[in-house]
Design a protein around this nucleic acid. Structure first.
Lengths: 120, 120
DNA sequence: GGATCCTAGTTCCCGATGGGAACTACAATT
DNA sequence: AATTGTAGTTCCCATCGGGAACTAGGATCC
């Protein structure tokens, strides 16, 4: 039984600079990551669909965001070599699980935005 | 009855670029903000205490992070003009409430870090 | 009375990241 | 030959993040 390529860190503490948790928090605690994962919650979506859902994102930043999520095993990228080109992104099991705390954060912001002082 | 200085946005949608929710998500969905608010969960802390808890943060970035949180009503900053200088940061009610979803995110990362593929 | 210590920052510099606008590749369609 | 549509890439610039060093102001040490 070979070991899978997973992190076997000892401490598991986001407050420890050396722990890989820090990098994962950096990935997930990010505006575009939180929105992109949410956009994939209801099933696979194409690049263009995600782009219009994440109002205001530039294609460059979206590509970068999706690649990071893919590299960390949260999202799968599938290319259908049709014409015009068709690329689909979907959550992995890990990505689906990560959606729960991020969805809570998004809805907390929406539910409590009226409590924030106006920006000066 | 005058209106309090709060956001009275209509849509309340983090996916809308114009909604102030977007700015709040940008503030909270941030590595240092998430860690700093967590560091204040158990009561007021001094600058130096927060700095050592957030292992690896530079004083410049910590100052900037705390100022942003203060400007948005999540944290109060109190200066005790003793010698040596003594400055305390503590959560506001809003900041305390924001801690809940952020704490879930931090613990989700710690609990699931073993499932992430190792960084290549 | 000058040097040192303490906290809570600020300043400088530089590399990484984020954002807008324009450009690319590919092949089917007009 | 020109246009269309998708999924990007490239260029350039502004902002952000990070390390190292420096600052302020009074108390304490020698």
């Amino acid at each position: 039984m070979v070991s899978s390529p997973v992190n076997d860190c000892g401490p598991r503490d986001v407050y420890s600079a050396a722990c890989p948790c820090r990098d994962m928090l950096d990935l997930l605690a990010n505006k575009w990551s939180a929105l992109a994962l949410g956009a994939l919650q209801d099933g696979p979506r194409r690049f263009g669909a995600i782009r219009s859902r994440l109002e205001g994102i530039s294609p460059k930043v979206l590509t970068h965001t999706l690649r990071r999520l893919e590299d960390h095993g949260l999202v799968n990228r599938t290319v259908y070599p049709a014409v015009p080109l068709h690329v689909e992104y979907e959550l992995t099991d890990l990505g689906r699980d990560a959606c729960a705390p991020l969805a809570l954060l998004r809805t907390w912001v929406e539910d409590n935005i009226h409590r924030f002082p106006v920006a000066s």
